[in-house]
């Protein structure tokens, strides 16, 4: 019998501006996220992680895999290039459509997925981005969180995507560690809220209860 999965999508900006310390800090952050989730018994059984990176194109760096078997991939970034955030969201929607198991007569479905978008710039593919924001809203995400990292990150496009936006002023390892610790507690709490009981009612019946986000660490400035 398969365990009901809680799919978690990390959508990470690897555009040229991330080169150097930011990309290193990001790698360490992702690794620490995985490690800390492994200490959460519910997460260890239920959480499945997928990593999408985007620079001048979006790629599925790691298809959805259980936390138990997950091997952190190499995250690399090119020397320069555009920030195709729209393409990344397009890929995210494709992945969710493909990955997500719904309840059927013979199989229990997944928990509603979580998505985290981290970017240090603004979308270069604005038209696609705007279209994909609508597509993301049509997918059954329990929550979408956006993180604007560094001084060049534009908040306006992210506000269209989600009300949950967090701002990292600097892109050093300390900030990223703080961010990913927080992501971890969010996943754990989502896990608890969703996983502890049959708690989310049918969307058609009522709006779902607000997904309760834990308090962010002090390094992360709440924008909204």
């Amino acid at each position: 019998m398969s365990v009901r999965r809680l799919p978690v999508y990390l959508v990470l900006d690897t555009s040229g501006s991330m080169r150097g310390e930011p990309i290193q800090a990001l790698k360490v952050g992702v690794q620490s996220l995985i490690s800390s989730l492994r200490q959460d018994p519910h997460a260890l059984e239920a959480v499945h992680i997928s990593i999408i990176t985007f620079d001048n194109k979006a790629r599925l760096l790691m298809p959805l895999d259980s936390l138990e078997t997950f091997q952190t991939p190499l995250i690399e970034c090119p020397q320069s290039g555009a920030t195709m955030t729209g393409a990344a969201l397009e890929l995210l929607c494709q992945c969710v459509d493909k990955d997500l198991k719904r309840n059927t007569a013979t199989e229990k479905g997944d928990w509603r997925p979580l998505a985290f978008l981290m970017t240090d710039g603004s979308p270069n593919d604005t038209a696609l981005y705007n279209r994909m924001v609508e597509e993301v809203a049509r997918r059954p995400f329990a929550t979408v969180v956006a993180c604007a990292a560094g001084p060049k990150a534009k908040l306006e496009p992210l506000k269209k995507l989600t009300p949950h936006i967090y701002n990292l002023e600097t892109m050093d390892s300390h900030s990223f560690a703080g961010l990913f610790m927080w992501v971890s507690s969010t996943v754990s709490s989502g896990n608890r809220t969703l996983g502890a009981s049959s708690s989310i009612e049918l969307p058609a019946m009522d709006p779902p209860p607000d997904f309760r986000l834990p308090c962010p660490p002090p390094e992360i400035q709440i924008v909204v």
């Binding site: 009901r4 719904r102 309840n103 229990k108 479905g109 997944d110 928990w111 509603r112 059954p140 969703l194 996983g195 009981s197 049959s198 708690s199 989310i200 009612e201 049918l202 969307p203 019946m205 009522d206």
Partner: peptide, 16 residues
Amino acid sequence: DGGEHAGQTTFLTIPS
């Protein structure tokens, strides 16, 4: 009495 996704169900406290 479940929904499309895991954990989705209905409650006594929902009028429908």
